[in-house]
Write a protein that binds this DNA or RNA. Structure first.
Lengths: 344, 344
DNA sequence: CTGAAAGCGCTTACAG
DNA sequence: CTGAAAGCGCTTACAG
């Protein structure tokens, strides 16, 4: 690999001038520019990104940390990553996928991240990632609110989880469903904390108490059960619950699918016997199930894009004022998986 | 951010010693190690990854270049990325998502990649990415064969595209389907080249000629039509084709969904009127459609994992002999979307 | 507009 | 086992 000295020598200029031709930070005369470009081409020279980063303190990469076990992304992750990558590329940034936990790495990865900033998806109540980022002075944006005031005023992009759960409960209750079962996200994540509180509150408005059978947490990501979440819960509750559950709220597409399978295996039908409402939907998928699912579109792609924009503002790539907290709209998309109960 | 000099001074040792404590490349005495660690903790010191990379010539990151327009990953990409990330983390490597085309970046990204190696998904016949990687002496692995001998003997992980198309055609023909319609991948990709040739060959075995209506290419990724691929083609061919098509082979889940919608919009049923066979399936999704789709499981996650392993071998993280070409098995998973024709 | 020199924060022979 | 010094390939004041 040719380096800047080689080009400088061949073009008969100084290293600084070659640097300027590539970085465009200072003007260079036409003649010199051409000589440098010609020499570079001849030597197949491209500037060394690492060396540049060392002095500019910019890597032009952002980290995307997603909780990660031995599992597959859901449709939500999929669209979220799409939104992030696409928006980041608009600012010349690349995206480093940073999964946790990193499995059995010999040398614990103690080095500072080679990134300019990070996006943290799904912060938990005591989030080690956030502690580290904060300690290292790394700019970051969380997708999902940070609770417990670990870091005050951290920039955040979020759905309005509380409003969402209220909307869903109101929607179901208006259609005659009082015995709901909520397949919530993993315990300890801020999103599940907010949702549970909202669930209790929303039902309390209608004088409905939340029994144990009505609320479930997703297993931790490292768990064997993670991918099957929703199946066993649905089987158990529909079989054993005394007051009959008539509607299920699923946390994501996978939980919804598992619930669908459980309902089918019990010989029940959707929505005649059990209604199903899914959060985090992938619209293209909703139309292919039978019946098409009714759900809440969280706009994951937009969440991703807006979190990049917010981070770009923190990094100085977007100038001027900018909100520190961004709420992404979400709306109910009606399919045919929720029954309007007649005996209401 | 504390740097190595600060720690060395506080611990009363040289920079080299601090370096050794963290890199473990040379032994350090217990006493000294403890002093250094204590000082590091006190100063919140973590080694600067960039500075280390500059001298070691290792970034501990691999690039994943995926053709990318303004679109969403399919289930195939989703699982592929999962396989890559998970396997890479086993070797202490991070993954840099490198999408093409990068949109309107001001300074064309002319710098050398801050990665140790790359995985190129879906090489095209004249692939600019491969030309660049090769020119820069960057180790890389392609997923999908390189045609045209741009680079001789490039390490490759692949499905056996030719065998796959033969298997699919044999499967459909054995069930009485002779008028097939193949929704192939994008023109110019090696996978679509191989598949088309195999399609013609497989049908020729049974003395069936391939008419225009029977073979289609996916629009380029930048195209507006990309996401809708399969809908218009299905409508048109089912309406206008003289000899009636009875089975459709879809390139991926999205194309299959679009074809399903088209079939439904024409008032036809699967599989009674039209059979559907999907390549690149996501098993969890296949079971939720009605009818469940019959398809060819390409094991995208395994493709991803094996391409990482092959790359790790090139980078010296895996020692010993290693094959330069790896074929990932694929198998037909039967749902209920292909009809056994009686009048055969 | 251009050059010479210092410096980014590490690692690595070399010497002891 | 430890230290002093050179060097990785760039950028950036500073001077002209």
């Amino acid at each position: 690999m040719a380096k800047i000295d080689d080009v400088a020598r061949l073009a008969g200029v100084s290293k600084g001038t070659v640097s300027n031709v590539f970085s465009q930070k200072r003007p260079t005369s036409k003649k010199v520019t051409e000589r440098v470009l010609k020499a570079s081409k001849e030597l197949n020279y491209v500037p060394n990104h690492i060396a540049r980063s060392l002095v500019t303190k910019k890597t032009m990469a952002i980290g995307l940390t997603i909780p990660h076990g031995n599992f597959f992304f859901s449709a939500f992750h999929n669209q979220f990553i799409n939104g992030v990558v696409l928006e980041a590329s608009r600012y010349g940034y690349r995206v480093l996928l940073d999964m946790l936990p990193v499995l059995e790495v010999k040398t614990p990865s103690l080095t500072s991240y080679p990134i300019d900033g990070a996006i943290v998806l799904g912060p938990t109540e005591e989030d080690e990632r956030i502690r580290l980022l904060h300690m290292n002075g790394m700019p970051f944006v969380t997708v999902g609110k940070i609770l417990n005031g670990q870091v005050k005023e951290a920039p955040t992009v979020n759905n309005d989880n509380i409003q969402i759960v209220h909307d869903i409960c109101d929607y179901l209750i208006a259609r005659g469903h009082v015995n709901l079962m909520f397949l919530n996200a993993t315990e300890g994540m801020t999103v599940s904390v907010e949702r549970k509180a909202a669930f209790i509150e929303a039902l309390a408005k209608h004088r409905i108490a939340v029994r144990d059978a009505m609320h479930h947490y997703k297993p931790r990501i490292q768990s064997e059960q993670y991918l099957r979440y929703g199946y066993a819960e649905t089987i158990r509750v529909l079989r054993e619950s005394e007051e009959k559950v008539t509607a299920i709220i699923a946390d994501d597409d996978r939980a919804a699918f598992n619930a669908m399978n459980a309902i089918q295996d019990l010989g029940l039908r959707i929505p005649e016997d059990i209604s199903l409402f899914v959060i985090c939907v992938d619209l293209s998928m909703m139309h292919q199930t039978v019946p098409p699912l009714t759900g809440m579109d969280l706009q994951p792609s937009e969440l991703g894009a807006q979190s990049v924009k917010l981070l770009m503002h923190k990094l100085g790539s977007i100038e001027g004022d900018y909100p520190n907290h961004i709420i992404i709209a979400s709306k109910i998309v009606e399919g045919a998986s929720v029954l309007q109960r007649l005996n209401h």
